[in-house]
Design a binder for these strands. Structure first.
Lengths: 246, 246
DNA sequence: TGACACCAATGGTCTTGACCATCGGCCGAG
DNA sequence: CTCGGCCGATGGTCAAGACCATTGGTGTCA
C-alpha cells in the first residue's frame, strides 16, 4: 500500500469523527503530524476533494462537506468546457430583449409574471461551428443596463460577479432528449427533427434567489454525455464531466 | 493562467497531432522540453489521464487513448433506480438467443466475432408501464446455462454475482439523444420518432474483462436526468443524480 | 466608534532531487 | 539459434523547501 493510500485512510477516519462543515487541521499541520510531506498529504486530500468529501477554502481551511449521497457529475461552463478540449469557444448573441416574464419563466425564476426580464438568445460555437442554442432569462432588476456587447467576449458568470456582484451558489439542471424545430435546425446547421439534448437550468444566489433560467439545445450529433461507473465500495462517489463526440 | 493549465494545453495540442495508441514523449523529456518540473508536468498528465485522453503504462510510456473524451457520472441499475423512487421495477424478457457476437458486439466485449454470446432483449417496466427497451449482450462462457426465467424476478447483477460469481468493478456509459424506430415505439407505447435517450454501457470485472454490453432506449417523455449544481468556483464540480419527470 | 491597513495563517503552485517498480530490448551463455 | 538474465528507460512515489494569493482577524488611526 502506498503512503498516499495510508494517508487517505487516516484522513477518512478523521473526517468521520468530524461533523459536516468542521475544518480539518491545516495541511502543514497534518503533514507533520502524519509524518509525510505536504505534497503527499495534498495528493490524498486532492482525491477526497474530487470525490466530494472535502471542500477547500483558500486562505481559510479545508472543511468536511455535505455527504453527497449518490452520484456526482461535474459540469463546467460551455466556455471552460471547450477550452479544456483545446477548442475555441465563442458565442453570437442573436437577440437581447426586455420583456415580461410570463407564466413559465416567472415560475422558473420565482418572480411575478409581470416582472421584466432580459431574454437573451445566444448561439454557442466551438471552433466556429454551432454547437448549441441557448435562451437565457434573467430579471432586469438584477442586471440593470445589460447590453449585448458585454456578453460577446466575457463569460456570463464573470460578468455577473464582477459587474453586478451576483454570485451563483447552486443550481439545478435537467437533461432530456428532444428534436430540433425549424428555427433550431437552421441555426445549428442540422436537419429538421434531429435528435438533440435539451438542458434546462436554474441558478441561485447563496441567499436562495433565482438568478437565471437557461434553456439550451445541444446538437445530438456532436455532443454526448459520458458516465464512468466506478464501483467503489464506500459511499461510492464519482467524478464527471461533459464530453463531445470523438 | 497557471503553468499547469498552460502545460495541459500544450499536451492537448500534442495529442491532437498523434494518432490513437501512439506514445507521447517521456515525462522527463517533456518536462525539460516544456521547461517545467516533472511534478508539474505529471499533474497536467494526471488530469488528462483522469479524463481519458491518455493511458499510462508503467515501464513503457504514456499513450494516446481512445477519444472517450471527458466525463463521468455515476449510475445505478434500473432496478435500484426505480426502487429509490418508490416505484415497482419489473422486466419482461422478450427474447434470449445464443448467437455469434458479430463485429460490433465483439469489439464492445473485446472478444472474437465468432464467440458466442447471449443476446437478451428485455422491456423494463416501472409500475407496470414500459420505460425502456434493453438489449443485453454477454459472453456465453461467462454465464453458461443462463435461462430466461432466471432473469424475470432477480436483479441481473445479483444473478451474476450470486450464481456465476462474476463481480462488476467498473463500467463506461455514454448517453445521447435519439428517436424511436417502429419497433421501439410499439414496445414502449410511444409515437414513432419520439425523442428518447440512448444509453450504451459496457461493464468490466476487477480483472478488466468485459462482462456485458448493453444498449438501452429510454422513453424521453418519462425519463430525464437531473444534475444538481453545487457551487464551486473554478474546477466547477457538481453533484448529480438521475431522476424522472416530476 | 468606525474604517482602514496590516499581518499571520491558510491553501495553491512550482522546483529540485531522489529512489522504487515495471517493462522490454539487448546480449551473453548454453 | 534459443533461452534467460541483465540493464536502461519509463512511470510511480516521496521529500523538503520556496513563493504566491486569499482570507480573516487585529490593531491603529481618524
Amino acid at each position: 500500500m502506498t503512503k498516499q493510500e495510508q494517508i487517505r485512510q487516516r484522513v477518512v477516519q478523521l473526517i468521520r469523527q468530524l461533523g459536516v462543515g468542521e475544518a480539518i487541521p491545516s495541511e502543514r499541520r497534518l503533514s507533520t503530524d502524519l509524518g509525510v510531506s505536504r505534497l503527499t498529504l495534498r495528493a490524498a486530500l486532492d482525491e477526497l476533494v474530487r470525490e466530494g468529501y472535502l471542500v477547500r477554502r483558500h486562505g481559510s481551511g479545508t472543511f468536511v462537506s455535505e455527504p453527497k449521497i449518490a452520484q456526482q457529475l461535474t459540469l463546467t461552463s460551455f466556455t471552460e468546457d471547450m477550452r479544456r478540449r483545446g477548442m475555441v469557444a465563442d458565442s453570437r448573441t442573436i437577440s437581447l430583449e426586455n420583456v415580461h416574464a410570463g407564466p413559465q419563466v416567472a415560475r422558473a425564476l420565482n418572480i411575478s409574471p409581470a416582472d421584466r426580464v432580459f431574454q437573451i438568445r445566444r448561439l454557442r460555437l466551438a471552433d466556429g461551428e454551432p454547437m448549441a442554442l441557448e435562451t437565457l432569462h434573467v430579471p432586469v432588476s438584477l442586471v440593470p443596463g445589460l447590453t449585448a456587447p458585454q456578453l460577446e467576449h466575457a463569460s456570463w458568470y464573470e460578468l455577473l460577479e464582477d459587474r453586478y456582484n451576483v454570485v451563483i451558489a447552486s443550481g439545478l439542471q435537467t437533461i432530456e432528449p428532444t428534436v430540433t424545430n425549424e428555427e433550431e435546425s437552421e441555426l445549428l446547421h442540422v436537419p429538421l427533427h434531429s435528435p438533440a439534448f435539451l438542458f434546462e437550468r436554474t441558478s441561485q444566489t447563496p441567499g436562495g434567489r433565482t438568478v437565471e433560467y437557461v434553456r439550451s439545445i445541444y446538437r445530438g450529433d456532436r455532443y454526448r454525455l459520458v458516465a464512468e461507473l466506478s464501483q467503489r465500495r464506500e459511499p461510492s462517489v464519482t467524478p464527471l464531466a461533459i464530453g463531445e463526440r470523438g
